[in-house]
Amino acid sequence: MAKVYVARPIPPEAEAYIAEHCEYEKWEGDGQITREELMRSLSDADGLLITGERIDDEFLDHAPKLKAVSNISVGYNNFDLEAMKRRGVIGTNTPDVLNETVADLALALMLSAARRVPELDRMVKEGKWEKGDEEPLYGVDVHGKTLGIIGMGRIGEAIARRARLGFNMKIQYYNRRRKPEMEGTLGAVYAPFDDLLQTSDFVLLMVPFTPETRRLMGREQFRMMKKSAIFINTSRGQTVDEEALTEALQTKEILAAGLDVFEQEPVSKDNPLLKLPNVVTLPHIGSATHQTRSAMALLAAKNLVAAVTGEEPPNVVPELKGQQSIKQ
């Protein structure tokens, strides 16, 4: 029977699924397992279930029997794909099950930044709400505005549906491929990247992190945006030049931002973005609901079991698709 290692706590139903099909060990220590402890635990493991540990040559040297690594995440920039290809190791992720939950959070960030919800919540709780306060508390409307989505994948589509049908927003998007179905059903308009930045009231970044998208948003891009525009990032922190974003917010180059992700996570307490009143900051919780995280863990378990038992996993990452493990 195949042996797998579970490197983080998972819901009982996901653990039961693994137990039904494999021998397994799991991390039961305090806090998060260290990289060194994890590598020491993999000498005879056929499979590994993780969230984000870097899988590279150094790591794989400690796992000679490893056939598959299953990420409980839609992202997989922790995979050194070339190293995994050389070793015949399959990598999987958990797309789709988190689409609607992340879309909910993107709308929450848009509303919170536009209506200054965290800022005004603090003001009330600190006893600073004075009689006669009116205009100093004003925000901006979301309904009827133009939303520009950079990266119209399935999460982007879920966001677009909410924005168009719930808030009567005009949708424009930039993507590697046109989405005729979205254009037909929601009236979404494909726009060149620069045009989208210049004409959107809300710019929402929803791209995967790749070498091509690293710091996709920098000084030049923020300067193109309207001074009244709000920037939202629910993708990966490395897709944004944080220094440029901070400067754009400090100098009123853009109005506000809503961020669920940062270049360094957990974010440093000295990050200047945390000191700006016109920024809504969240601790990378896009998919963080009990229902969605449980669904992600179960899908990751199914991916892992399929890979180590010789079946085709449901969600092999695209760059490794068609690769069968050479470790039989």
Rank of each mutant, 00 (worst) to 15 (best):
E220M: 09
E130S: 12
V189S: 11
R219Q: 15
P95E: 05
E100Y: 02
G184L: 12
R116H: 06
G127F: 08
R162E: 06
D141G: 09
D133F: 14
P95L: 07
E220L: 13
D194N: 15
Y173Q: 01
K179M: 05
Q172L: 11
F222R: 14
P208W: 02
L98E: 06
V124I: 15
V97P: 01
M123K: 15
F202Y: 15
L205N: 08
G139K: 07
A113N: 04
P95M: 03
W129N: 10
N175F: 00
M217N: 09
H143D: 10
V203T: 03
Q198V: 06
M169V: 09
G184F: 10
P118M: 04
I159N: 06
L216R: 07
D195G: 15
L205H: 05
M110L: 14
Q198R: 15
T185A: 14
D201M: 10
E157N: 05
V102Q: 03
L216Y: 03
K170D: 11
T185R: 14
W129K: 09
K145G: 11
A191R: 11
Q172H: 06
H143G: 08
Y174Q: 02
L205M: 13
H143A: 13
Y190A: 12
F202L: 10
E119P: 00
P211H: 05
L196M: 07
R162H: 07
L147H: 02
L204R: 01
T213N: 03
N99T: 15
R161D: 05
G166K: 02
G139P: 07
R116D: 01
R177M: 06
Q221V: 09
Y138D: 05
D141H: 11
T199P: 01
D195W: 02
A103E: 03
D104V: 08
G148W: 00
K145I: 13
